[in-house]
Computed example of a mutant assay.
Amino acid sequence: MRVKQPEPFDPNREYSPGERCVYRGMVLIAEKWTAADARLANNNPAIFTQRCVRCKIKREDCPGIGRQCDKFHRGDRKTIYWRLLRIVGGFKGVETLEFNYNGTIAGVKVKAAPDSNNK
């Protein structure tokens, strides 16, 4: 079975939930942000982070306005965020822990770094 390869990230394109893209050495997948996710993030911010904190698109590439991730800027009225699926071949992942203001672990930050074989 042939699988379609993910294309490079286009900030002006409206991605549907489940679509994939390549961004800075990472393959990302668009996930739908549901009301249950928002409720958990609002009730337990130390355990469940907000949508823009979970999103793997960097702030300098996504200022938050007009990037086709909010339901007010999309045609299908869905809210999405980008989740890490895997690291692209030829890269390796560098993982660091993220901490909240009170010292609890908020998540794991994965940064794609060039592999030592493919500098």
Rank of each mutant, 00 (worst) to 15 (best):
V108F: 12
D61P: 00
G103D: 01
N43I: 01
R20P: 03
G89F: 00
N43C: 11
Y23R: 08
K78P: 12
C69R: 01
K4S: 02
N118K: 11
F99Q: 13
A41M: 09
R39F: 13
G18V: 08
F91Q: 05
R77S: 10
A36D: 15
E31Y: 14
N44Q: 12
D61Q: 02
E7M: 09
R59A: 11
R24A: 03
K71T: 11
P8G: 07
V88S: 15
V108A: 08
A41K: 08
I65N: 05
K32W: 07
A35L: 14
I80E: 01
R67N: 04
H73Q: 15
E7I: 13
P11N: 03
K119I: 01
G93M: 06
V110L: 07
V108L: 13
E14G: 09
A30S: 10
V22P: 03
E7D: 04
Q5R: 01
K71E: 15
G93W: 08
Y81P: 05
K4Q: 10
A38K: 15
C21R: 13
G25Y: 02
C52M: 09
V53F: 15
N12A: 10
A38H: 11
K58S: 11
R20C: 11
G89W: 00
Q50T: 14
Q5T: 05
V110I: 14
R39T: 09
I105A: 13
F99I: 13
P63Q: 05
C55P: 08
R74T: 11
R51A: 11
I65M: 12
G103E: 00
R54I: 00
E60I: 00
K56M: 09
A113I: 11
C62P: 12
R54L: 07
D70E: 13
Y101M: 06
D70P: 01
Y15V: 06
R86K: 11
I87F: 10
V110Q: 06
G90R: 02
C52H: 08
A35I: 14
N42F: 06
A113G: 04
V22Y: 02
M26Y: 05
Y101K: 07
G103M: 03
I47V: 15
